[in-house]
Nucleic acid binder design. Structure first.
Lengths: 241, 241
DNA sequence: TTATTTAATGTCAGTAAGACAATATTACCC
DNA sequence: GGGTAATATTGTCTTACTGACATTAAATAA
């Protein structure tokens, strides 16, 4: 730690310095609907409004570390429960926060269906809300979080086209039908089950079969799969249009 | 400007504040090679090393405004000359700058073939360097700019698959062959000219024909096209594999 | 045993891509 | 002017993949 400095040790005295926040778009699929994890704000500004979980970068902390720390602190989700996380984008309009100019680095996370979230450290509530309910309702999220959420949803829709990441919404092992329901929830359409099965099982690296099956449910047992090792799908999954 | 504040007016006295820089990955195609615009640093740290152009966010300035300002200031490229620009990602490792923790928001720009850049305001030099030369050579760029550049190149390769943005490397009007040479330079492969022609002209919104042709060059004159209005290609352009 | 439910495989036509042949239209050279 | 070279564009054929939909398989429930 030879480079460790106090906050007051600044190499460019004249340069503008800004608070840097990390905000999280945590998505999951519940009851065949794409949902986002939101926090009800306990303090001004936007007190009582729904917002994305997030917090400020601390001294010596990387952006990924901040994202992981805030996820755990604010929503109780451990790192091991996260199916996938990537940086979504950075939002820096000078007036996006009424208090002062704050830079927000947004991260996008996919998690399997979660138990009801518990309230975080502050006295605020967490909830898992269907995306459709937010876009049709007139209620806006705090700050520019509507815009960030919209970007996260669009990124997610695109990611499912050319990566095998839909599996990140399922557990470690899943059926082809569970995977199809993820696609249907995220894309908001229905897909032909036989064609989907053929596509998924014949595309190299999309999924790999385990030697286990489902049991106890009605109907024929289904083969269980886990995510394959491909980074991209060749050819991609198509959603028409 | 009711919210205008002095730099010293801070709503969260205890929150860490960091300098926020915007760095630019400016790509162009020259002599059938994908190239990047670099600046030779005139000051420490990394004095004399090649680096991406960039600079710090100023008071009241959005990230896009910073990107555009730095592009003009450091490389002399006007906004009208830029074919396309988007945010690439944000890099925030605490030790990425030896002086102190600085957040870098990277932007990716595509520009048509440029005249030799002139030196910017500071006494530093700008140059347009083939990507291949950077990746095979042992010389590293300043800071984490190798990583940022790599991310920009990979984003660009992916963008050409599912958007019509290759045209942003050409001028307003271009031939199908000029467009194909962009793909070949970015992807580092050769593409079959007749098949490429069919694909580009039959995919809705990829290009639209003008009523002009080339003339004066050897061989049959080529039809001139401009970029179509599609945001995404359906189906996408494939690069095998 | 039979019906019901869900999973998985098979069929067939239409579409798009890769390989490559053939034709079109210009400039260049004698 | 006629032939040659260069580049652009269109056409052909095979193969791979998708979408629509029929069929079979394997479990539970009545």
């Amino acid at each position: 730690m030879t480079n460790k400095k106090y906050i007051t040790s600044q190499s460019f005295p004249s340069i503008l310095r800004l608070p840097v926040a990390v905000d999280l778009v945590v998505l999951t699929v519940r009851d065949a609907a794409l949902c986002v994890l939101l926090i009800k704000r306990g303090i001004a500004p936007f007190k009582g409004k729904w917002a994305l979980p997030g917090g400020f970068v601390c001294t010596g902390e990387s952006l990924e570390a901040t994202a992981q720390r805030e996820l755990t602190e604010e929503t109780g989700i451990a790192a091991a429960q996260v199916g996938y996380m990537e940086q979504l984008g950075t939002f820096g309009a000078p007036n996006r926060d009424p208090r002062e100019h704050i830079i927000a680095v947004a991260y996008l996370a996919f998690v399997p269906n979660l138990p009801e979230p518990k309230a975080g450290g502050d006295a605020h509530f967490a909830a898992i809300v269907p995306i459709s309910q937010l876009f049709e309702g007139a209620e806006k999220l705090a700050f520019d979080h509507d815009v960030i959420l919209q970007a996260g949803v669009e990124r997610t829709r695109a990611k499912l086209e050319y990566t095998p990441l839909a599996a990140a919404f399922c557990g470690a092992e899943f059926t082809i039908n569970a995977l199809r329901k993820v696609y249907e929830a995220v894309w908001g359409c229905t897909l032909d089950a036989p064609n989907f099965h053929r596509k998924v099982t014949k595309t190299a690296g999309f999924v790999e079969a385990t030697d286990a099956q489902t049991s106890g449910e009605s109907g024929r047992p289904a083969q269980l799969f886990r995510q394959g090792n491909a980074l991209a799908l060749h050819p991609p999954m198509l959603r028409g249009g």
